[in-house]
Write a protein that binds this DNA or RNA. Structure first.
Ligand SMILES: [Zn+2]
Ligand SMILES: [Zn+2]
Ligand SMILES: [Zn+2]
Ligand SMILES: [Zn+2]
Lengths: 168, 168
DNA sequence: TCCGGCGATGTAATAAGATAACGCCATGAC
DNA sequence: GTCATGGCGTTATCTTATTACATCGCCGGA
């Protein structure tokens, strides 16, 4: 299961896909998931999730904060956003990209996966993948070291197809 | 080549290995490497490298800064440390652990490798590995996506052998 | 030798990211 | 109604990282 919902690998909004659909879909899945788990996807958290999904690029907490403040028409405190993000990450609706200090919507919430990303250094898009080979390799080597894995992080920086074509 | 120089996997200073040797060795290799490349391993940079190697735990830039200030007997600016770290990272003498905002000495400088780590959430030790299967898996999936890799990041959080034994 | 260039370092200020401490209020169980 | 819980607001503070500008020292060319 490669979790990329976009047929054109590495693509994003500039490819003119129906991103409104991406957002609506993400929100719907979140509603369903939280209902199923008895988790409270409050208005605020839902709002933050929607803002995270504003693009397929990882977004910083303070960028989200700005959006939120603007949308609410009043200044919001950083903590508000961080708390919402914490909830969303805990429930697997959002991933944190460690190497960017940024957050991105999960492409396959609910499914068991470990969060692996191809992050383009040029356009900023990040594609979530979930390659069983990588997972397996990490599991194997961890076992060899007697290491008990709790959270694997794979973030591959580089250049996506589109950006390679633009700068050959 | 699993780059762990310590026979007891995941070990560190508390195992009583000769850490002075680790440091001396790291500095020697750094000298050699920089000489070979015509890079200037200045006194300051060498000092910072030594401080990074103070343990096998990743260390924050400001922790290193404190050590440096103390050793120099005068306050040092953050930028001083960040510049030195930038140099060391560029030359592969030090790795940055993204998920910790911290820095750790490279176990195999000079050799081509991608920096993969097993990071214990309990004791803070980080063991550098360089598993060809992980590298290969990342290479394969990147190719499948037409993605050109520049810097793969693999940071596996979890619990090391020692810490598992202590808390069964 | 003197000069100009360049890379390394010093200094100060500030940006960006994240958390701590405290309290109020809505919800729901009893 | 009462109480406990969890979510949210407010304020202050902390950690991490960078920007802007000045200075120093080394080295090659005039
Ligand atoms: Zn989309
Ligand atoms: Zn995901
Ligand atoms: Zn290394
Ligand atoms: Zn440990």
């Amino acid at each position: 299961m490669t979790a990329d919902p976009h047929p054109t690998a590495g693509s994003a909004s500039h490819h003119g896909h129906d991103h409104a659909h991406c957002i609506a879909d993400a929100l719907m899945r979140a509603d369903a998931l939280c209902a199923e788990r008895g988790a409270r996807l409050t208005a605020l958290r839902r709002q933050v999730l929607e803002l995270v999904w504003n693009s397929h690029k990882p977004r910083g907490a303070y960028a989200i904060l700005e959006d939120l403040s603007q949308r609410e028409g009043k200044a919001t405190a950083p903590l508000t956003v961080y708390r919402a993000l914490e909830f969303l990450v805990e429930h697997g609706l959002v991933h944190r990209i460690e190497s960017l200090n940024a957050y991105i919507g999960c492409a396959a919430p609910g499914a068991v996966h470990s969060g692996q990303f191809l992050v383009c250094e040029t356009c900023g898009n990040a594609v979530e993948i979930d390659d069983p080979r990588i997972r397996a390799a990490i599991g194997t080597i961890a076992a060899e070291h007697g290491f008990q894995v709790s959270r694997p992080t794979v973030e591959v920086r580089g250049t996506c197809t589109d950006c390679q074509e633009k700068t050959p």
